[in-house]
Simulated assay, not measured.
Amino acid sequence: MTTIKIFGERDAATRHLRENVALALSSFPLNSRVLEVSEPNTIRADGVANTPALMLDGDVVVEGRVPTVEEITRIFQNRFLYKSKLFRLRSVMVPVDISEPSANALLFAWHLAKKFEAKIEVIHAMDSIFEGGLPSASGFLAGYKKTVQAELDDFIKTTLEKIGVTYGPPAQTPPAPKNGEETSEPAIKSTVLYGFPEEVIEEQSQKNDLIVMGTTGRGGVARNLFGSVSTEVSHIAHCPVLFVPAEATFNGFHNVLYASNFDSLDALRIKQVLTFIQRLGARMHFVHVGPAGEEGLELERKLFEVNYEHAGAEYPFIFNKMVGDDVIEQLNDYAFQHRIDLMVFVTHQRSFWETLLHKSITRKAVLGAGLPVLVMHSDDDMLK
């Protein structure tokens, strides 16, 4: 059953919202219950800052205005999309190892968080009391953690200074907008946690909507995209993961390559990616990867087209097929020729991405492309 909450102070705007919700339900019936919340403390406790507001299954979908009946109907029709992590994108996690590659990932995360009005959580995992910095003078673990925390905050401060952003821990809340800006700078929280990086990142990914991490780091080959940590994260994360090469520079995303085989033709994932790139103002390049003589491509193109049109994309998508064994190498060639800014891999089963990861040509080609790679899986926890 879908729970619909209407927040307001029993004024004309709230009554208007209630009427529009009723009309939307009459045109698109849902197994639902509608609750009205008017008590100020309860409204704030539910995370609503401006009324009237509309909440769907615990997620605020409209705030500070009265949506039209048509808009509410679309929200009901796409209610699963509104629950997806990539769509709501409220919290971005950046695992760092105090290296230049992770600094670059932090810069990418900051720009995305700014665009989507999300908060940033920077984490550093200590899998050894002597990893990541100098031990404290006392030699005790608690003292050492304090030393690493100071090193982490200094790392964040130095990194953000490159783009003219001032960071002063604890920075739990964003500063007020300046000179009429529509959005303020993202709130940033830094945390040092004990544990192996893979385990820490997996646990923290459950409460974040996107992970942004570098493809190389202090551990060299053992800590790059195709090494132990990042490869494991690409398999076990409970949210999408954006891998950022050390040499990549954030200039926005204008052309996005959606790499697919038949397993990745998932309507909900397509809509998630489409709404994500629409908010970035990007164009979608849908590129099928598979062997020569493969059947079903026309059906795949039509299915993708239906989902694309339903999402109301601004630009027409571009459909292409890549044939051959060295799939990633061909994708990199396509990316170079079409000025691709981001590659997206969405798979119904993790075996497709896993197969790519374990080919030596893949490792060389993707790292050589110097492009960010967004990895998503068709898992239920991507919708929590």
Rank of each mutant, 00 (worst) to 15 (best):
L274A: 11
D11E: 10
V37H: 03
G133L: 08
K83H: 15
L107G: 01
A113H: 05
F253K: 06
G180Y: 10
V69H: 02
L89V: 04
P169W: 06
T215Y: 09
Y334L: 05
A311Y: 00
S190L: 09
L25I: 06
A103H: 02
F76P: 04
V229A: 10
L56T: 02
E309M: 15
D209Q: 02
Y308D: 00
M1H: 10
V92W: 01
T51I: 14
R350Q: 13
N179R: 09
E329R: 14
D266Q: 14
T183P: 02
V289S: 05
H348I: 12
A176N: 07
D333T: 15
S38E: 14
K146H: 13
L342M: 04
M55S: 10
K5F: 10
W353M: 08
P240N: 03
A313M: 14
F276A: 08
G281V: 06
D127W: 00
N41G: 12
T158L: 14
V122Q: 05
L81H: 01
K157F: 07
R279S: 09
A176I: 07
E70S: 14
Y167A: 08
L112D: 01
Q206N: 12
V233H: 04
L160P: 02
F336N: 15
E131N: 12
P291G: 07
L367Q: 10
L25D: 02
T173P: 02
F286E: 00
A12M: 09
F304I: 05
P169A: 15
K145G: 08
L30Q: 09
D333F: 03
M93R: 04
P186Q: 06
R339M: 07
L299T: 12
S138F: 09
F304S: 01
I361W: 03
L35H: 15
A222P: 01
A142W: 03
S128Q: 06
L134Y: 15
R363V: 11
D263W: 05
D379K: 14
I43V: 14
S128A: 13
R269Y: 04
D326N: 13
N41H: 14
P135L: 12
F286N: 06
P40Y: 10
T159Y: 07
L89M: 08
E309G: 09
V61A: 05
L268W: 00
F116W: 04
S136E: 09
A13S: 13
P95H: 02
Q349R: 09
D57N: 07
E305Y: 13
K145N: 11
P240V: 03
R79Y: 11
H16R: 15
R15G: 09
N50I: 11
V344Y: 00
V200D: 05
S234C: 01
E203V: 11
R283A: 05
F116R: 08
A171W: 03
I163L: 06
D11A: 13
S99R: 08
K119P: 01
